[in-house]
Amino acid sequence: MGKVHVDGRDAGGVTLYALSTCMWCKKTRDLLSKLGVSYDYVYVDLTSGAERAGLIDELRKFNPNLTFPTLVANGKVIVGYREKEIKSALGVA
C-alpha cells in the first residue's frame, strides 16, 4: 500500500506519514477530514521492503526522528497531533 489520495478542498501540498495502529495518527486524519482538505497519506507500517525504505528516506528529510504522525503541509513540518499548528499550516483559522 503506497500513498493514498483523499479528495477535498485544495490547501496546497499536504502529506501525512502515519501508522495504521496509532491513535494520534487517526486523530490527525480525522482533523484533516473535518477540515475537508485534500491530502495524501501513507501508513508506513503497512509497507515493506524497498517501498518502506524509500518512505523512511523521504520522512527522514522532514523529521530525522522518524516519529508519527508527521504532517508536511506547504513545506511546514508538524510532528505529533497539534491541532493549532495543523490548522495554521493549512490556512484555517
Binding site: L19, T21, C22, M23, W24, V44, L66, T67, F68
Partner: peptide
C-alpha cells in the same frame, strides 16, 4: 486494538504509536 494488531503481526505488543 493497535496493541493486538501488533501482537498478531509480530508476536509481541509493540507500541502502536512507534514503528517496530
Amino acid at each position: 486494538r493497535g496493541l493486538l494488531t501488533n501482537m498478531e503481526r509480530f508476536g509481541y505488543m509493540a507500541c502502536p504509536c512507534r514503528l517496530p
